[in-house]
Every structure is written in C-alpha cells, then in structure tokens.
Design a protein around this nucleic acid. Structure first.
Lengths: 267, 267
DNA sequence: ATTATTGAAAACGTATACAATCTTGAACTC
DNA sequence: GAGTTCAAGATTGTATACGTTTTCAATAAT
C-alpha cells in the first residue's frame, strides 16, 4: 500500500490497448514482406504478444515512460494488468532475455540500466549489422515495402509534431526494424530488433541533444535510396545515420534520475 | 505411463552433473578474460545456470542427444529433474528464446527444428560476425587467453579421439564462443553464442560428412594466428572455416529421424 | 478398408498457497 | 547522533490445484 503510493500505482485495472496496435502492425508487415516459409516460427512471440505485461512494459520502455532502473514489483504489475503473478513472471523473464529488464535473484525486476560499455557495444553492433541490412533492403524492396516505409515515416513525423516524443522514439526504432525485415534476413532482423529496443534505454540514459529532428531527414533520405534500389547509397546513409546517433551519446554523465514514477505505465 | 515408456523415460531421479561443469567453465573463463565491469550483468543467466532443466536440456541439445523435433513434455522433465513444472516452464521458455526449443500454445515444447532457410541465415550471420570477432581477438589476446584456447583444443581433440562426438561438437562450438569472448565485445559475443548453439541443431539436421576432423586443424591454425596477433590471418581463417562448415550442409534432405528417444537425456 | 466421432486420459495454462528471502524502521547501544 | 539489532511486513521462489485444451484410441459410419 505504501509502496503502491510511492510508485504512483493508483491504477484502475484496464485492458491495455497495446496488444491491438502491435497485432495490427504485424498484420501490415505480413502484407508487404514476402513470407516464404510459414514453418519458420517465432512461437515464443506468438505467445508473448498476448501477454499484457510483456507488451505493456515493453512499450512503456520503448516510449521512455519507464526510465532505466525503475523497480518492477510483481504484485504491482499483476494488479495493474489484472493477471496473476504467473503471467507477470513470464513477461518479465522474456523482457530480461531482451535485456530490457534486469532480474536479480530474490530482488525482483527493474528496468535495465545499460552501462556505458553496453551502450557503446550495442551501437557498434548496430553499425556492423544495419548498413548491410539497408543495402539488402534496397535491393529487395518492392512497391509495397516503400509504401509501408513512407506511411511509417509520416506517422513518425506526426508523433514528433504533436510532441509525443516517446511515441516518436518508438516509431523511429520500428523504422529500423522494418528495413531489417525488408532485407528478408529474419535471423539478423531479429537481432537488430533487439539492439534497437535496447537503444531506447541507451538514449534515455546518455542522449545529449534535445531534438530527434535529424531522424526525419535521415529516414526520408533512406527511403528515397531504397526506392531507387540504390544499395550503395542506402548502406552509406544507414552507416552515417548510426554514427551520428552514436556520436550524440555522452557517457560521462552519471545516471541521476530522481523523478517520481507517476503514471509511467498508464497510457 | 504409456508416454513415459514410449519416450524411454524410465528415469531414476538424479541430480544432473551438468551444472557443476558449466560453473567450472565459467570460472575458468573469468580468469583468462579481463572483466572490466562487474555491473554489466546478465542476471538472467545467473538465474538460469541453476535451473537444471535449462542447463540439462541445453547441453543435451548441444551434444545432439536430443535430436530436432523431440517432444519435451513438461511432466516428464519435471519428474526427471525432480522439480515442479514451474521450473520446467521457466527453463523451456528460456530455451525458446534461444531458438533451441519451439513452444506452441497448448501443444507444449519440442526441440527446435530449424528450417533450411533458418540454417542458411544462421550461418550467414556467423560469417558476418565471427571473422570480425576473430580479428579483434587476435589483437587483444594475452598469454592466458591463448593458453585457455590451447587447453580447450586439447579437450576437443580428446573428445574426438574417444569417439564422444556429441561432446566434441559442443566443445567445438564453445571454442568459437571463447574467441568471441576474447574479442571483448560482450554484446556480439552473446549473439555469437546463440548462433553457435543453434548450429548444433542445424548440423544435426543438414550435415553431410561424417567426420568433424577438419575442425581440429582449423582451430589449431586459428590459435596460432591469434598467438601471433595476426589479425588479418585470424579473420581470414575464421571466414574460410565457416564457409567450409556452411558448404558441408545439404538442405535437400527431409528430416527423417525415427530413432527412439532412449537415454537421450540421461548422461 | 477408410474416415468420422467421441470420450477418457494426458498435457498445458493460470491462479493461488505457502515457504524463503529481503526490506524497513523502531528500539537499542555506544 | 551514528550505527547496530531484530522483528514485522513486503516481496520473491516454488509447488500444487484446477480449469481448459489437446491427444489418442475405441467405436461407429460410409
């Protein structure tokens, strides 16, 4: 009770709208990206998509409503999402595997707090994988893919304009994942998806600039290159985009988040 | 009862010796590889290492005692390892995240059955990541690292000589992981570790040659290059080694495993 | 002989109970 | 006043109970 108050967890139990949108997005991808083998499964995800804790907390982290280090007590989450602790634990364990959440034995879960080293490594890995992905995407992208990318870029833009910076950040990450998916290398796309997710936490901790404006230009330029099937240009644009992001991180600041956690989960 | 018989699961409940060795290996690494930040945690693993289901099933898969597609009934595992289904589920979910196990809603778990496409993608990803890792390892490796590698190669050799092909395969994979760890890029090392694990399943399904003899020469040559700090050579050796492995896979054969699952888990 | 039906047994999904561990804060000592 | 001790409360870890779904074999129908 005291704890719930401290966390600002005066929740009315509600069903999260998260699941709906995620499913929608998946559906949309399915149309634009050729799926060669139905048997190539990520069944874990199929299960996870309907775990409200997983989808809800993931989304809250990607939108930076849950800052790094935030304690995630099982009972609070169970109450909030109206499920038992069993489901909460499943979701938290999955998030821990994605490095979005840290699990400490007998101490419970908290939003991950990537170290400067981890931050650097994540971006180095992205700089290694994503340019190649962008090149491949430029070679493979069809009309539907380009259309989906443009639609998505518009959504990003609108989120920025209406000052929904959290939503903008999440969509920006999703843009990178979409490119990786167009490249039609699921294994690598999945790795990239994970690295991109972690980037939201890294940006929350080490980002220096206030604006994410650069994203807009970069992303549009990338779409143009992909539409032209200009593989070399797409690869180079992606590389420089990532280097730019990476260079906007500052690792010399200590994590000093003293905000109260009011309404971080709800909406 | 009927089912247990069919699976050859006439288990005497015993504590798996798996955990012990794994811990030992980790300890050994810790000595040979410089650890800069204790806070850079993979706490999920800390938890998982003492999950007998996770360690036992993982090891059985890596040693090809559990062939792809093998059904993993929760109750059987619970009985075998002497834990409740709660623990079994935690372990299986973790294995599913590593793509070693497939979870289908209401249908339970089975050893993953990577498609030809997934197999190809895994090796493509390895060819992308590991050569670079080997280069970095060659630059960074110290005396202790080289010594650990040679010790490990000897273990591999002995496993081969004594016809423990499963153990040899697992150790061979571990060798690649060790190099990735020496490269001191934990994020990428973890990705490689996962790809290497999946390779055991891929080899079980699509391997054509009977011998793994080539490994021995390749690995020794790699150690030599690393000892000389010859980055270029190490990178090239790793690249060609992986290409050779990849080229020894045949994707046109259907999976026809009709073996009974006797004693696949025990020992 | 092959396919459909069906119901019992087995297996999975989720909630909950209880034990083990950690946290907190008040009382106490120095 | 700063630090220590310890018990009550809170939180996590594991097992188990129970409802739901699936599987499978026996039976019936085509």
């Amino acid at each position: 009770m005291k704890k719930a108050d401290k966390l600002g967890m005066t929740f009315t139990i509600k069903s999260p709208t998260t699941v709906g949108e995620t499913v929608y997005n998946r559906e949309r991808q399915k149309m634009s990206i050729s799926q060669q083998e139905a048997s190539f499964s990520r069944r874990v995800d199929a299960d996870l998509v309907q775990n409200p804790v997983y989808t809800g907390v993931e989304r809250a982290i990607l939108e930076q409503r849950l800052p790094p280090g935030t304690r995630l007590a099982e009972t609070d989450l169970a109450d909030f999402y109206g499920v038992s602790r069993t489901i909460v634990r499943t979701g938290l364990q999955a998030l821990a595997h994605s490095h979005l959440v840290t699990l400490r034995p007998n101490r419970g879960a908290s939003v991950a707090n990537p170290s400067p080293r981890e931050a650097r490594e994540v971006f180095e890995a992205r700089e290694l994988l994503e340019p190649r992905s962008a090149r491949e995407a430029a070679l493979r992208a069809g009309r539907a893919d380009v259309r989906a990318l443009r639609l998505h870029a518009r959504e990003e833009h609108e989120a920025m304009r209406s000052n929904e910076s959290g939503r903008a950040l999440r969509l920006s990450g999703r843009f990178h994942v979409m490119i990786a998916q167009i490249a039609n290398q699921r294994t690598i796309a999945e790795i990239i998806e994970n690295l991109v997710s972690r980037s939201s936490l890294i940006i929350a901790l080490y980002w220096t600039r206030s604006s994410t404006r650069c994203d807009e230009g970069c992303h549009n330029a990338l779409i143009d290159a992909i539409e032209r099937n200009d593989a070399v240009e797409a690869e180079e644009l992606m590389r420089s985009h990532l280097v730019e992001l990476h260079s906007a991180l500052r690792f010399d600041i200590g994590d000093s988040s003293n905000k109260t956690l009011k309404d971080m989960l709800s909406q």
